[in-house]
Nucleic acid binder design. Structure first.
Lengths: 155, 155
DNA sequence: TATTGTTATACTCTATAACTATA
DNA sequence: TATAGTTATAGAGTATAACAATA
């Protein structure tokens, strides 16, 4: 009943008390629960979280180049290449040559990309509403209990 | 200055306001910051976080089998095999045949495994002390700000 | 039939190094 | 020389399917 006890009643009796008392383990489980819930909202036909993030940043920063985008999202530059290849192939992002500095490519959303992003923002807000409601129910004060509360979102 | 603004002053001016307003993005960044800090404490010669978790669970549940361990840590059963192979090769874990049910293997820490675990628990507590001190400095009340505060741990 | 440990496969992610074309 | 995009590579992590031994 206490928020600090993240037990599942169907699980066998394994002593996890040490790990469950650490913020590191709690935040990892909480993050996985949140992402699982996001994917629940995105659905089978949905974008990955990373691609959604890429579209969201390009939308608010039209003309941004790949290096800046990678830095903003804290992923390595080489990671952006297959990601943007896919998004370009899907018709959501355009890569235009930058005339002022031909090393750069200027990233923009296509109309289809804008529609896809908006649709996923709607789906994302379903997730956020679910999470907010879950936390509003009874929000633990200490950090560890709060993270375990998040981790139990639709556990 | 406000806790809700996770800006880095060295970064270029990119509008990240949408993602930074979501718990999903904040908890991901917070989790990465926490793990980075754990690895800072574990050091170059240290275990991975997963291997540390495996040792910690076996220590408190001697004789546990691989399937139960996998379920407890929420990793797939096949993942445990190379993990335990490594830990066995390193001399930290023993896999004994279970006489009552010969499908099972009974996992135990070796003396070296116990020493390795204890050493890493000490290093882990350094991390936790650093994190606690960081949060005690000024702990934001709302979840989003709290996560961004965590995410800025040694950012 | 069901379960444990295992193998195999495939895809994603992370982290580097190095190449090319530009500047 | 430095930077942007790219290629290549290697190591983790994730997710499934399937197999042998055992129950």
């Amino acid at each position: 009943m206490a928020d600090a006890e993240p037990e599942r009643n169907d699980a066998p009796k394994i002593d996890m008390s040490y790990l469950e008392g650490t913020i590191g383990y709690a935040i990892r489980r909480a993050q996985l629960a949140v992402f699982a819930d996001i994917y629940r909202s995105f659905g089978k036909d949905g974008l990955t979280v990373v691609k959604f993030s890429v579209l969201a940043v390009i939308a608010d920063n039209p003309g941004i180049n790949q290096a800046m985008l990678a830095e903003a999202l804290d992923v390595e530059r080489p990671r952006m290449v297959p990601l943007l290849n896919d998004l370009e192939k899907s018709g959501f992002v355009s890569r235009e040559a930058n005339l002022h500095d031909r090393r750069n490519k200027s990233l923009k959303l296509t109309d289809a990309g804008r529609l896809m992003l908006d649709e996923h923002k709607r789906r994302f807000s379903d997730h956020e509403a679910r999470l907010s409601a879950w936390l509003a129910e009874s929000r633990p004060e200490d950090v560890l209990s709060l993270l375990w509360k998040v981790a139990r979102l639709r556990a």
